[in-house]
Amino acid sequence: MPEQLIFGMEVFLNGLMAGVLYALVALGFVLIFKASGIFNYAQGVMALFAALTLVGIMEGQVPFSHLINAVFGTEVHHFGWHVPALAAIFLTMVVMILMAWIVNKLIFRHLVNQEPIILFMATIGLAYFLEGFGDMMWGSDIKKLDVGLPQGINGWIDEKTFNIFDYGFFIDNLDIVATVVAALLVVALVIFAQYSKQGRAMRAVADDHQAALSVGISLSFIWVMVWSLAGFVALVAGIVWGTKSGVQFSLSLIALKALPVLMLGGFTSIPGAIVGGLIIGVGEKVFEFAIGAPYLGGATEIWFAYVLALVFLVFRPQGLFGEKIIERV
């Protein structure tokens, strides 16, 4: 087999793995959009915030220590204990649920019946707020996150592919874990939405707010639940991304990458988020490998996803799996 093709296959596989991570973030978007019609720009920052909180709790950091030190002239930084990963994840989840409740109570209750674009802007404001809040609470330095996920090259794949092609593929263990986690998450979400009582209620709300209200579904409960779910997805995404590249500001930028994923897949479809994520992940890696790096000077990954989504939308404005857009005067 020619070398280029083997390299291409490796790039393809790595693209698939990257795509899974995009899909993880995109999932959170779809959940909230389906249930409340809010396009939650803050999803990426929520992932950042969740990861920051997780690290902070695990390391036993004092929240707002920077602020406290600046105001009172003290020198507190750590409580001096370490919390085990599982307990910290649980505590972070509690924080995310609390956040979901506050967000709904303080923001979106007051914005019911506003235009979608106003809601979108509000989530941008929320993203800014959370970004500043997270940094103020836990400090803005780059943190290492280690909850015990395996990392490094997968020896088994390396060995197997070396036997077949005389060239070992480099696949990160973490990516494999992420893929498994994403798959489990999707299955769990689908089962939850299809078969549980709350899941049914959620789909009813997504279908028609007023009709759902009239059969006795509590809108505010469903919304808090959906935001908590999105917080959970954000936490998972934050753990995976944070383990991969450290917990830092750029984590919130993956939210921007999730947007073209959503556009490709359609805003309302959970399978769409997965397929869109895979297409974008593979597309940008392969494009960079085949055209970007040799001919265009590299770093095409920055814009490829957006241009791909743009070109795609011109031909199919509702995305791959989106519901057909019907407009009436």
């Binding site: 600046a70 106003i118 509000a122 404001g125 940094d135």
Partner: peptide
């Protein structure tokens, strides 16, 4: 005025801008 570190002021700026946007959208779209 208060002698805070600049990065703290930058974080606070993010918080305030974010909160302002939300407050404006709620109170006066």
């Amino acid at each position: 005025g208060l002698g805070w570190p600049t990065d703290l002021a930058a974080h606070l700026e993010f918080i305030i801008v974010g909160a302002m946007i939300i407050i404006f959208l709620i109170a006066e779209p």
